[in-house]
Computed example of a mutant assay.
Amino acid sequence: MVFTHDTAVALIGAAAWVNTDADTEEIPDVAALDAFVTTWGWTGSRTHDETELLAVQGLRPRLRQLWLLDKDGVVALVNELLTEFRALPQLVRHDEWDYHLHATPSSAPLADRMAVEAAMAMVDVVRADELSRLRVCENFDCESVLVDLSRNRSKRYCDLVCTNRAAARAYRSRGAAAEV
C-alpha cells in the first residue's frame, strides 16, 4: 500500500471534487452538493445553504493546483491551506473508521474541512516523494485529474470511459496504418 487508507480516500475524494466540472457546473445546487458529500462520506456539520455551496465551489480551482504545481508549489499551497484554515491535527475515531487524523473540528465549515483534508493528504504525498502519482488524464480531450494508486504506476486515464476511448483510438489508428 502506497498511502494509509485515510490518505488514499482523501486524495481520491479531492480528485473527485476537482473533477466536478465547473464549466457545466455539475454541482449546481445544495441538493447536488448533499449527494456528493454523501457519496464521498464527508462527516461533520453542514449548513446546507448557498453560502456553503459557493465556498465549496470556490475551493475547486485551488485544489486542482495540487495536481498541476511542482513540488515547491504544492508545498507552498499545502502550507497556505493549513494556515488559512487553522489546521490542528488530532487523532479521531468515528463511524467505521479506526483512529485517523482530522485537522479541523467537525464543526468547521465543509469547505474548510475539505481543504484541510486534501492538504493533509498532500503532506503524505510530498513526504513520500510520490507526487508523480497525481496526474492529469492522458486522454487528449479530458482535463480530469487522477490519483494513481496502482503498484506499477500505470494508471493513465481518469476513468473507464477515457480508457475505452483511448483504446478505440489506438485500435482505429493501427487499422489505418495497416491499410497504408
Rank of each mutant, 00 (worst) to 15 (best):
D159L: 06
E143P: 06
W40R: 02
L68C: 11
T38G: 11
A55F: 01
R93P: 03
D112S: 12
W40P: 00
S154C: 12
T51D: 08
E96A: 15
R135M: 11
Y171T: 11
R62Y: 04
F36V: 08
Q65F: 01
G13L: 00
P28Y: 00
N152R: 15
G73K: 10
P89L: 05
D49A: 05
M122N: 10
N19V: 09
N139Y: 14
P89T: 02
G13E: 08
T104I: 07
A22Y: 04
A176W: 05
R172L: 13
W97H: 10
G13S: 15
S45P: 01
N164D: 06
P105K: 13
N164M: 05
V78R: 15
N19E: 12
A55S: 07
D129G: 11
T4P: 14
A32L: 04
V136R: 11
L69Q: 00
D98K: 05
R62A: 07
H102V: 06
Y99L: 15
S144R: 15
D21H: 11
W42M: 13
R64V: 04
A22H: 05
M114A: 13
F3H: 02
R64C: 01
D23F: 12
A87S: 09
V78M: 11
L131P: 07
V116P: 07
T39D: 13
D95H: 09
V116I: 06
H5Y: 06
S45W: 13
M114C: 10
N164T: 04
T163D: 11
V78F: 02
V9G: 05
V30P: 08
L91F: 06
L101D: 00
T24I: 14
R174F: 02
E50T: 13
V74R: 10
T24C: 03
L66V: 04
V78Q: 08
A111F: 03
R172M: 12
V56Q: 06
D112G: 08
T104S: 15
R165L: 10
C162M: 03
A16C: 10
A87Y: 01
L88I: 12
N19Y: 09
R62K: 07
A121D: 07
V18Q: 00
I12L: 14
S173H: 10
D129Q: 12
D6R: 14
L134M: 10
D95F: 01
A76G: 04
A16H: 10
E50W: 06
T38M: 09
Q90L: 10
D159Q: 05
Y157C: 03
E143W: 08
I27A: 04
V116N: 12
V125Q: 06
L66A: 01
E130P: 03
V116A: 06
V74H: 06
D129N: 14
V136D: 03
K155R: 12
T51Y: 05
C162H: 07
E84V: 05
R153P: 00
T38E: 12
Q57S: 12
R60L: 02
P61D: 02
R127S: 15
H94V: 09
N139F: 10
E138F: 00
V9D: 12
M114P: 03
R151C: 00
